[in-house]
């Protein structure tokens, strides 16, 4: 989707608000919201691509103005309700209650398996690499162009690279394809490549900074051979 989250190259947002001695969490609620990726993930709410797509569907103005971890709470609510696990009326009622009683305690429950999961997933991670029989259609050194159409669902094909031509500099193997998994489909693994774009290719000679490149990772369906190089792909 052509969402506000797709920020690369947007002008007018102002200086970077750097906070000195920034704490890891700014409030207690941020810790709870941070726990709302890994634990609902374990409960089958979403994969990481769907998690992102839930955030992308926030109202654009709120997306830009809300604190970061509210984005996480938004996507958890989105998928929890969609899965029928969270009841919107119940959420509203409890929110009113905690607004009036901010110090009211949370329900208490112990779950050693969940604690073990937390430590385990932090150490082991959850790689998006997936085996596939697909042969790579491109190799390092190939010049490719990014498709310039505008998909409606989740994609990582950012607007600022669409239609642009660059050179493949790294080939990473096959990974979950976000345009499938992020839209509720299967893993559908595809080859991932890093494409190097010159600044002038992305922004035009007039405004591009000198002597620089942007490196962007693409999945194979995002790209076609660059004009004049058709047939060079294996």
């Amino acid at each position: 989707m052509n969402g506000v989250h797709d920020l690369g190259g947007t002008d007018g947002l102002g200086p970077v608000p750097v906070e000195e001695e920034e704490p890891v969490f700014h409030a207690e609620w941020e810790k709870a919201a941070f726990g709302m990726f890994s634990m609902p993930f374990r409960a089958g709410f979403f994969g990481v691509d769907q998690f992102r797509f839930g955030i992308e569907q926030m109202h654009p103005a709120i997306y830009l103005l809300s604190p970061y971890y509210e984005h996480w709470a938004h996507t958890v609510e989105h998928f929890g309700v969609e899965k029928g696990v969270l009841d919107p009326a119940d959420i509203e009622e409890r929110t009113r209650y905690y607004l009036e009683n901010p110090d009211a305690p949370l329900p208490q429950r112990s779950d050693p398996d969940l604690l073990a999961f937390v430590d385990g997933v932090v150490k082991a991670g959850a790689s998006a690499a997936r085996e596939s029989d697909k042969k790579a259609a491109y190799a390092v050194g190939d010049r490719v162009r990014v498709l310039d159409s505008s998909p409606l669902g989740h994609t990582r094909r950012a607007r600022y690279i669409r239609g642009r031509t660059g050179e493949i500099v790294l080939a990473h193997g096959t990974f979950i394809y976000p345009d499938s998994a992020g839209n509720g489909g299967g893993d559908a693994p595809e080859h991932v490549y890093t494409v190097r774009f010159t600044n002038s290719e992305l922004w035009g000679e007039e405004t591009a900074e000198p002597n620089g490149f942007v490196y962007f990772d693409v999945w194979e369906p995002y790209i076609v051979p660059a004009a004049g190089t058709e047939g060079s792909a294996a």
């Binding site: 409960a43 949370l106 604690l115």
Partner: peptide
């Protein structure tokens, strides 16, 4: 936001999805 996140957390604790100790 704090109240809403707490509401979500409370429901997910009751549903067996989260615990405060894991958070």
């Amino acid at each position: 936001i704090a109240a809403r996140v707490k509401a979500l957390e409370a429901i997910m604790i009751e549903k067996g999805i989260m615990t405060t100790e894991a958070v």
